[in-house]
Design a protein around this nucleic acid. Structure first.
Lengths: 254, 254
DNA sequence: TTCTTTATAGTCACTCTGACTATAAAGGCT
DNA sequence: AGCCTTTATAGTCAGAGTGACTATAAAGAA
């Protein structure tokens, strides 16, 4: 290494950084992508909405910190939080991203089925779900993080079984298709979607017997649960964009 | 945030972290994947080989630090380093990953064409290329970082135009195919590879006129240079693994 | 009942892919 | 020179996958 720590290994001399995690927590509600945001109670950006997150504790990994913060913000039990999929997105290190001090932030994305409003436990008093297309300017560089998270989630739906994380334990293929359509912002052909999902080994498995979902208007649908595969073969590719809307800014840093 | 900084914003109180970058720099040489390593001159892990890297300067982003370190280790000019593709992999935050102090490290991957041995400038005196399959145990958690980097590079070859970064400015399709075969560890059918590469818009563009490569034994090949596309449509999918050699720990990143 | 809605089954043409064969153009040999 | 080896490039062909589409089934609503 070219900036080796000094002989005495004094952390303060070479450790002028704070480290945080930021969480982009998504759910699909009413056929819209929603993201969990918290209102800031103090400067800077007081009153603005931000991604939930916080500082790493002294002997905590970023993944552990992300799960702890998620449990605090959502009121979910540690068991639930411990089981769900947390994906590290990337790390944001712009020297000016926090006006107070030098902060690098490790961003994570999490996917949840539709849940009741977060029970404000402690500092999560002002946490709520927002339509991901209707969030105003967020605090810090969180607009950028949110955009990167949406890109990543959309891409992962293509070749991973991640979409089931948006669904409850048992779900219909219609609900699964709704997830894809909502995240991608496109409409998919129902018979074709069905054919592809069922032909991908381990993506979903039918729930035993002939159980069917109640409540809807049309013919009841068969129920499935998530299979044991994590990768999707063959992948479920997004239809090529016609023309409009291209957001992604290929891998820069800041 | 749940661990807000204190009123006075004293960096030392909430900033007990050092931040480094680690670089997985790859090249293809003699049909083998090689990685740039440096020998550690001091404890811990004195005498062990490690990924190049170092501490962030006080007002430097991780990407800038990675480019600076790369220039120092390889002896490449800042112009060259500024142009090449640096991809942020992920960030490693295990509290015990560095025995000296709490260090979080942002890992980057870089791809270079085959170059002469690194000219040891300054601390790069002991930098050299290693066959990526023959590296002993590395310092810190660098074995893990290296494995993650190889996974990521292999995955990105499928749907991005990254492979041209391993090639010189002008290259033959045979050389490009060699990159894929080396990184993936498989043999590809030459006519089929050719068909796919040429049918992907913007992947490669023929060099004007009828120039042909000299030196080899067989029929001279046409030269190409990298096109202007960054994504690959349709993707160039890896053949499904027969059975042998499974290193990957499922759930890649893309 | 009839209409609307959703689920599911099936068809068909087109494209892409992998496996393969054939030909061209170079250098190395004897 | 003539032949062999090597590499590049062109083309063929059957099978898998895909998008677009039609048809039928099963529920609630009007």
């Amino acid at each position: 290494m070219s900036n080796p720590a000094p002989e005495g290994y004094d952390p303060h001399a070479y450790a002028p950084f704070a480290v945080t995690v930021d969480l982009a927590v998504f759910t699909v509600r009413d056929a819209r992508l929603h993201v969990l945001l918290v209102e800031r109670g103090q400067e800077p950006f007081r009153g603005r909405w931000a991604l939930p997150g916080g500082f790493l504790l002294p002997r905590e990994s970023a993944g552990d910190a992300a799960r702890r913060e998620l449990a605090e913000e959502t009121g979910l039990g540690p068991g639930t939080v411990g089981a769900l999929h947390l994906e590290q997105l990337r790390t944001y290190t712009d020297p000016d991203r926090d006006p107070r001090m030098r902060v690098v932030s490790v961003a994570y994305a999490a996917l949840l089925p539709d849940l009741p409003e977060p029970r404000g436990g402690g500092d999560a008093a002002s946490a709520r779900w927002w339509d991901a297309d209707a969030v105003g300017p967020l605090a810090f560089d969180h607009d950028r993080i949110l955009a990167d998270a949406r890109d990543r989630i959309g891409a992962k739906l293509e070749y991973s079984c991640l979409a089931t994380a948006f669904c409850p334990a048992e779900f219909t293929l219609g609900e699964l298709q709704q997830v894809y359509e909502t995240v991608w912002g496109v409409e998919l052909d129902r018979p074709n979607f069905r054919r592809k999902v069922l032909s991908a080994p381990g993506f979903v498995q039918p729930v035993g017997g002939p159980p069917r979902r109640t409540g809807g208007r049309g013919k009841p649908a068969a129920l499935y649960r998530a299979g044991d595969a994590t990768a999707l073969h063959p992948p479920l590719l997004r239809p090529p964009r016609t023309d409009a809307s291209s957001s992604g800014t290929e891998g820069h840093d800041r």
